[in-house]
Nucleic acid binder design. Structure first.
Lengths: 204, 204
DNA sequence: AAAATAACCGACTAATGGGTTTGGTTGTTT
DNA sequence: AAACAACCAAACCCATTAGTCGGTTATTTT
């Protein structure tokens, strides 16, 4: 194999496994050796490619998490259809994959934010930025909805966006331990109820 | 001081400081020495009173967290007034103290649940039980509301309860890092909007 | 083929943390 | 005065972990 390709392949393997374990067990609770053991790679290989554990983690955020956030949380709500439907369906989709994969990236974000809060400002910056991208996109989707006549124009888009994010994060926390399916079902009912209430009132 | 009183005083000091540090830095990221250093106490004292770090943590849950959950999240929503108002005001209250103390106990619960998920079943049991107490109480408050004619009788009380908990946990996660005041304000507006929508429809 | 270098190995270090033990001190109770 | 509870101080054990470093293997370049 070509050298630079091999480099990338190895780095990528490490990142994927790293994310998996960091997510499952927590960053501080996962050792570099844990990751290497799973891949049958050595410490030398790891520190050949990455400066430090922290550096490694940031590279994961940049190359894996951000992309997934885009493909799962942002792209699905773009377009000019009814944003209320787009958002509902997107959340439903994400929660369904979460139920089986237990690896949706909105929650990955949330999980890490909880873990690093007040401990590592450097990493928190990256996490918050990524979360902000989601938030900004929700806001602009809602605003587009106002413009297109789908959303009532009295709605506070920023408020709704951060409320959606809040409730989503919360329900994902509960889903990890509790009965995921019924939680998802209930949550989707409630959020649909909530979102429908802000649809543009059609005069009959 | 009387012996048993002194014992309790020391244990209590350790528990309070322990909770503070566990909450701020995480359980796994806080050493027993960290706690003892802050109190100028010795390891001997610690292991004289507690069997282990885990035993110590469980004692904190039992003697501090549970009580606070009752006084902050459960007692305020008891009574026969409009449950929609009771719940809204209770959440507002808790978020306000959270903003200044950064130590409300609904979130303490959430924070630990996130940390111990899949790592320590023993501790998770205590956390989930405590959370369940809150949930059960929300449900029965809502049901009482139906009975008293405050809440629309088509409402799914379990669904609403877990949705309230979800969104609350989520917003508290965001409040730690983001601009707490505006988040709280927005969140309260949205949850009030949501809750009002399930009020019993009075015929004018 | 030889030199150069990229990729990788794994033993080791230094530090940390949970937990134990021990020997002694102070204050209270009986 | 004897007994005991509530500590202190410090050494110590054992396991874990981030990071280092000298050396080896594989691949590319000359």
């Amino acid at each position: 194999m070509e050298k630079s390709l091999k480099r990338m392949a190895t780095m990528h393997k490490m990142q994927v496994t790293g994310l998996e374990l960091f997510y499952k067990q927590g960053y501080y609770n996962t050792s570099v050796d844990d990751i290497l053991k799973k891949l049958s790679l050595s410490k030398g290989a790891f520190y050949y490619h990455f400066k430090s554990k922290e550096d490694f983690f940031i590279s994961i955020l940049q190359s894996l998490v951000v992309k997934k956030v885009y493909s799962m949380l942002i792209e699905p709500i773009e377009g000019h259809d009814n944003p209320i439907d787009l958002i509902s369906n997107c959340l439903e989709e994400v929660l369904q994959t979460a139920e089986h994969n237990e690896n949706d990236y909105g929650f990955v974000l949330h999980n890490f934010i909880t873990e690093f809060n007040g401990k590592n400002p450097e990493i928190m910056k990256y996490l918050n930025d990524t979360l902000k991208v989601w938030e900004v996109n929700l806001v602009s989707t809602l605003q587009r909805g106002k413009f297109n006549g789908y959303v009532d124009r009295h709605i506070d888009c920023e408020g709704v966006a951060s409320y959606i994010i809040s409730s989503f994060m919360g329900v994902r926390t509960l889903m990890v331990e509790g009965s995921a399916t019924s939680l998802r079902y209930r949550y989707m009912q409630q959020i649909r109820f909530y979102l429908r209430a802000m649809a543009h009132k059609q005069v009959a």
